[in-house]
Design a protein around this nucleic acid. Structure first.
Lengths: 370, 370
DNA sequence: CTGAAAGCGCTTACAG
DNA sequence: CTGAAAGCGCTTACAG
């Protein structure tokens, strides 16, 4: 693919007599830089990698000459070759199990990517999005015929659900990675930065209990993901401690009207909803049905919409610091790839706290309200 | 980095007597596969790359044996080595002059990235985001000390304003790239996929003229970007053709109340606003000021918010197909990098049409209305 | 101080 | 049909 075609260079007079590549140079290599600078290829590599330690000292004049040619040709070392020769590329991969960029309905990753981009810029790495892994049945496969994970020095894994076998295989492979979201696969050996949904959900449950609620209903997503389980566990354990029970149902959001009818039959005074979008729709259904919120029914969302402007209602809810999640994941991955750099290390598994937002959709329960 | 540590394999009895890697295998190579299957390393490569053409025929029995070992060891070829051996690295770079991922206030790139991701997936390339180029004074520099553009096979450029000198230098470097948005730098040699703002703005002007508007006001952004100029030109030429003038002012949105006061003194019957967010704010200011929209004042937005849910008002406006813009840019870049593949080539400079949305903020002008 | 050389893990003509 | 060998562009001991 990158043949041995000869490249031509000429002096560009409008540019202070610097060398400028013409005639579609296939790919500039260190050998060409070396020729142009009148040194050996190894010297170019040495200059490039700033080996200024006692053993290999290159005269400043030579160094400057080489650097100038590099600037003029906008040369960069071939990442694949560097990689093969055993050094890193300052490349962090991002593998998303679903499409990374939102369509109109879902916008799960955007805040994470915002945090990731900021952190990546800070530590000076580029981001490689593995879009070549095709999305099959709504999901990407980590290991497939033409796996390219190793183009990057390490990788961030994003997705609501991750395949436990793939995760185990990855953790056994010694390839540096960090999952975003708590993962309990591989006997707890997965490095992750997750959200403490359990604690925040428990706080919200406690709040409802303190207000006097006794009749709880929980509508959650049909996933087996840790994030779904943590919320469920947080709610259940807090209620169990108070001697209360909760009626639970699952919804994928395709028939919320039916879900609402079922909720109504259950006659709860407080409804916990995992998905913020569902919470909003259910509130509208309740009101349309003559059930006032929060007077007759409190509704609590265990998540929130991506951007404030999408919230027409100020729900009583938990708020996950998603940008922070992204930047902390980058920091942890950086540490795994490059070591702690002297300071005490970050824990391999981290949970960041949610904020509990009081909002306006929870009130003291009314008897026989629904 | 990937040492020569010896790997151990053992028969896993729970797995039908297949070979399974144990003890943190550093990295499985073709050489190991070859040893295990009792063939040469080259044969493994041949099997892997499915070279079944007349010259290189491998007996099915051998092939199956090799494939089985590959499955058992969960081997994948090192992409860096493949790439170095001459198979392309299938990497498209994305250089964004501003931060690629949105904060709460702006979300310029997201729809583009959605289109880019879809197209990248289709042609099987990964996406490299140049986040290592630091954002200085709100902008990234294309050419800086540690330019890493050549990490990718080619590159997409996104940003409202691009430096003409940088663009010229890039186009002279023979590095394949495509700008998103019309660019007239470098004597028209910049390959781009842009939006035809001029035509859509002219259509909207025509609409207003046909409704009987004679008093026009235009509030645009303080940029010298092509996108700003095209809209201005579209409006001006259409009005000039009808013998009408337009009062023009610039705003950066920081003091829209003052802008509104100025507009009001101008007493237009129709107000064109470049930025959709500003249009929305100005409409609110007008209404608060006792000026009904569109009865007393028509307002036309020359852009739109990123997502429908953010539109509280159905503005008369133009709508740019941003996802399409992203996917067409990928297609054009792919062509520039790899050739047309037989079919007739895509034009190097493309303009996609906007949709004109009638909306509810334009009406027949009332005399002495404002 | 700098060059020649080995080696990273692959692919692909080219010989057997 | 399959193996030995060259080469992709780098980095890094190791000799001069």
């Amino acid at each position: 693919m990158y043949g041995n075609t000869h490249h031509q260079f000429r002096l560009n007079e409008e540019n202070g007599g610097r060398l400028v590549a013409i005639n579609r140079p296939e790919r500039v290599t260190q050998r060409m830089i070396a020729e142009l600078a009148g040194v050996s290829q190894a010297t170019v590599s040495l200059v490039l990698n700033g080996k200024t330690d006692s053993t290999t000292r290159i005269p400043d004049e030579t160094r400057q000459r080489v650097l100038q040619v590099i600037r003029d040709t906008t040369y960069v070392a071939d990442p694949a070759a560097r990689r093969l020769a055993g050094v890193g590329n300052n490349l962090i991969g991002i593998f998303t199990y679903e499409h990374a960029f939102p369509n109109e309905s879902s916008d799960f990753y955007t805040p994470l990517l915002t945090g990731i981009e900021g952190a990546a810029e800070q530590i000076g790495v580029d981001l490689l999005m593995f879009t070549s892994a095709p999305v099959i049945e709504g999901r990407r496969r980590l290991f497939h015929e033409n796996n390219r994970l190793r183009l990057a020095d390490g990788c961030l894994l994003l997705g609501r659900e991750m395949d436990a076998d793939e995760l185990t295989r990855l953790v056994n492979s010694d390839y540096p990675f960090v999952a975003i979201g708590r993962r309990d696969a591989a006997e707890g050996r997965i490095p992750y930065v997750g959200v403490d949904y359990g604690a925040a959900t428990a706080s919200l449950a406690r709040l409802a209990i303190d207000l006097g609620h006794k009749s709880f209903y929980y509508l959650h997503l049909p996933y087996d993901a840790e994030s779904t389980r943590d919320r469920k566990d947080g709610l259940n354990s807090e209620l169990a401690a108070a001697g209360l029970a909760v009626e639970t149902a699952v919804t994928d959001g395709t028939n919320l009207a039916a879900d609402w009818a079922r909720v109504r039959r259950g006659q709860p005074t407080v409804l916990f909803v995992e998905d913020a979008g569902h919470a909003e729709a259910l509130r509208n259904l309740a009101i349309a049905d003559g059930v006032s919120v929060p007077e007759a029914l409190s509704i609590i969302a265990l998540g929130e919409r991506t951007r404030p402007s999408e919230h027409t209602v100020d729900f009583t809810r938990l708020s996950a610091p998603r940008e922070e999640l992204g930047s902390r994941a980058v920091a942890l991955l950086d540490q795994i790839m490059n070591g702690t750099g002297g300071s005490t290390g970050l824990p391999q598994q981290q949970l960041v706290s949610c904020t509990v937002i009081a909002g306006t959709t929870m009130a003291i329960p009314r008897v026989g309200s629904i």
